[in-house]
């Protein structure tokens, strides 16, 4: 068990060291200009020198991502339940939900800003709209695949429709919804980036890492731009494992035979 645990840290670390090492050598031997691809050591330097700026921008983005995912979980789960109970609703809304995923938010951003200004809310909406879809699909599928015999049995025990939902369907859908959120997380950070760059921000406030990256690109601050990306990556990984942990806590039965969680 302890060797297994150690491997879980050593293996990704080894891959990381190999990747970063190769990258460092590639840049140092003049394979590419520092303005195009900064060496890892300059990224590390930028990370250190701009820690305050990065931190304040990170906080803005982190709030957008975390609240956005939670909003997506809530709306995705509720929408799935509503569509599960009403086939009319499902027929009416499912195609729209799929269509919503094809909207490039640069198109909608001016409207959102017109409604809600430059604050955090329009950004949350964008993150949530992008992230709610995987939650909706996984939850709906899980609700759909509850054993019909299970529901029949509960009916012979005089369960009402609502009781059957609470006892059999909702617990089955819960881990699926969290799985959906894990998938959504992969795009949530990019969604936050899109949200920040398409809706802008009021001057002088911490604008988020997405905004900062775009500024750094135009200012040729390549090392700082990469430093911001590193922060986003670490954050995404941390969020993913937090969700995995939450899933294990909330739905221990879903992991009974696997022992180890991803």
């Amino acid at each position: 068990m302890s060797t297994g645990k150690a491997l879980r840290i050593v293996l990704p670390a080894a891959v990381l060291v190999a990747l970063v090492g190769g990258w460092e050598i590639y840049v140092d031997t003049g394979g590419v200009s520092q303005f195009v691809l900064p060496a890892p050591h300059s990224v590390a330097g930028a990370l250190w020198n701009n820690s305050e700026l990065l931190w304040s921008n990170f906080k803005t983005t982190a709030i957008e991502v975390v609240l956005g995912i939670l909003l997506a979980l809530l709306t995705g789960f509720s929408a799935a339940v509503a569509m599960h109970f009403s086939s009319t609703l499902r027929r009416a809304l499912y195609p729209l939900a799929i269509g919503s995923q094809a909207v490039p938010f640069a198109v909608l951003a001016p409207t959102l800003v017109f409604w809600w200004g430059f604050g955090i809310f329009p950004k949350l909406v964008i993150v949530a709209v992008i992230c709610f879809f995987p939650v909706l699909v996984t939850t709906l599928d899980a609700l759909w695949s509850v054993d019909p015999d299970q529901l029949k049995l509960l009916r012979t025990l005089d369960a009402s429709r609502w009781q059957a939902f609470r006892l059999a369907e909702a617990p089955a859908a819960l881990p699926a919804a969290i799985s959906g959120a894990k998938i959504a997380l992969a795009v949530a950070v990019i969604a936050a980036f899109i949200a920040e760059t398409s809706t802008g921000a009021t001057a002088g406030s911490a604008t988020g890492l997405g905004w900062e990256i775009v500024n750094d690109i135009t200012a040729l601050q390549t090392a700082r731009e990469y430093a911001a990306v590193v922060v986003l990556m670490v954050f995404a990984v941390a969020c993913f494992y937090t969700l995995a942990l939450a899933e294990r806590r909330l739905a221990p039965w879903a992991h009974r035979s696997r022992g180890e969680v991803s």
């Binding site: 015999d149 006892l167 039965w253 009974r256």
Partner: peptide, 11 residues
């Protein structure tokens, strides 16, 4: 009813 499959709720 007691069915052939136990249909116990895993949670």
């Amino acid at each position: 009813l007691m069915p052939q499959r136990d249909l116990l709720l895993p949670w």
